[in-house]
Amino acid sequence: MATASPKLALRPFLPTDAPLLAEIFRESILELTSDDYSEAQREAWISRAEDLEAFAARLSKQLTLIATFDGSPVAFASLAGNTKIDMLFVHPIVSGQGAGALLVDALEKLAGARGASSLTVDASDTARGFFEKRGYVAQQRNSVSVGDEWLANTTLSKALVKPNAQPEA
């Protein structure tokens, strides 16, 4: 299991966070996904955060957590319902330093505590390996229309351990 850096912490989303989270969203897509998606695909994807009010509303309707590094937001993740990780975006400057793992650990625990037996995620080709290393299993490939572009992703799922369940011997 991932361990958090003492400088990494979690806090809930506040509506005033939306502009900064939109910037994390943009930077993450621009800098981390170029090996898997064309420039046109990335620009279409980024356009989903252009309407800041709609972006904030989407995050507000879900359980959204923010990872901070020394108090500054560096990543965020959201849980739709109790069963789907809707968004997970990490600023490139802290990529690979545990912020994503900290967020997903927290969402898994919260979903399990709320009665979910499994979690799903539609992971980008860039994020697929991250989720597979955490025990998520590919279920199907998807093509998503965003503007004039098609983006591929993979639906993955993971069974959650019940909080009071005893491990089998």
Rank of each mutant, 00 (worst) to 15 (best):
A127F: 13
H91A: 04
L10Y: 02
T120E: 14
V137L: 15
P163M: 06
I46K: 12
G112P: 08
P15M: 06
F25T: 01
A101C: 05
A57S: 14
S124H: 02
R141K: 13
R128T: 05
V137P: 12
T155I: 06
L52V: 08
S34K: 10
F25C: 00
I85T: 03
T120H: 07
A111P: 01
L14R: 14
A4H: 09
A159V: 05
A4V: 07
V104Q: 02
H91N: 00
P12K: 06
I85N: 01
P92L: 00
F131T: 02
S38H: 08
Q62M: 07
K61V: 03
M87N: 08
S72N: 11
T68S: 07
G71H: 10
D51E: 08
T83R: 05
L59F: 06
L65G: 00
P12D: 06
A127E: 11
A75T: 11
Q140C: 10
G112A: 15
F13H: 05
A67M: 01
N153D: 11
L65I: 05
A169S: 15
V146T: 13
A169M: 15
A75M: 09
A2N: 12
S95A: 08
T155D: 01
L52P: 13
A116I: 00
A123S: 06
E27S: 11
K61L: 07
A44S: 14
S95F: 00
R42W: 08
E168I: 15
R128C: 09
A18T: 10
K7G: 13
D148P: 10
A165V: 10
A159P: 02
V146N: 06
F55E: 12
V121T: 07
E23P: 00
A4K: 08
W150G: 02
R11A: 10
L79F: 02
A77D: 04
